[in-house]
Amino acid sequence: MAVSVDEAVSTGPARDRGRPARRRGGRGRSVLEVALLTVLAVVMLFPVLWMIETSIKENRDVYAVPAEFFGFTVTMEHFKDVFVGPDGGRSALSVAFLNSVLVAGASTVLATLLGVPAAWAYSRFAVKAKKDQLFFILSTRFMPPVVVVIPIFLMYRQVGLIDSKLGLILIYAAYNLPFTIWMMKGFVDEVPSEYEDAAMLDGYTRLQAFRRHTLPLLVPGIAATAVFALIFSWNEFVFAIFLTSSDSVRTAPPAIAGLIGGTTTDWGLVAAASVVFALPVLVFAYLVRKHLIAGVTLGAVRR
């Protein structure tokens, strides 16, 4: 209350200034706002543009000092190097990309298969200590990966899952499961349970009612959730670098990170590999832009 009184007092002079003056000030402010927004947008987007630009520059232009923004020769060499190895065969990077597709895809399928039924059950049934269970599930996702990876590493070494795609698939599925359950529970909550009740009055069992009436309505939600799980697995780095080592198993993030660290770094190649790596993510993210808030908050915040 005290605050509003202070405010009312402080706005006194502004009120006296009269309408036309304020309107002119408003236009000036609007121009200023647009200018500020433009500057911020340029700053935020410049690194992305620079990455794309670097990926199509010849090597001598990449290292040019001062940096060349325009008028460089365009080349597709770096993109060729991403996919074709020096000996003309498949490059190590392209193998890593294929591994990434396989690992991200399989872990997403697994997380979806386990997560969707669980989300439905949490939404529909009176489960004991439901809220605690759900919060527990989400909190597993907050564990620091560097910490979790220590016992996982020992565990995998024991059962022979070190440096295997299956090992990565399992850990990614577990990593995406809390998200899938939370996100899907939101979607299931939106489908009225009366549909199932009505179907059950018609003689269907609960399971049949779910399959015939609820599941078809959930398909868009499942697709959006799966896309996010796909993005998370695709981008994941910590587990990948500690649990895999050989070129035939490694996914793209550690493979791209492995391009630096020698005596010289081919930044053109790094840029091209990064562009190839990031492009599908941006396309997918654009497809699920309606669910972005729920997606990036792990299904915790919905609108």
Binding site: M44, V48, N235, F237, P253, P254, F277, A278, V281, V296
Partner: peptide, 8 residues
């Protein structure tokens, strides 16, 4: 920027 991998 948010959608990019930390590696990139």
């Amino acid at each position: 920027p948010m959608m990019l991998s930390p590696v990139v």
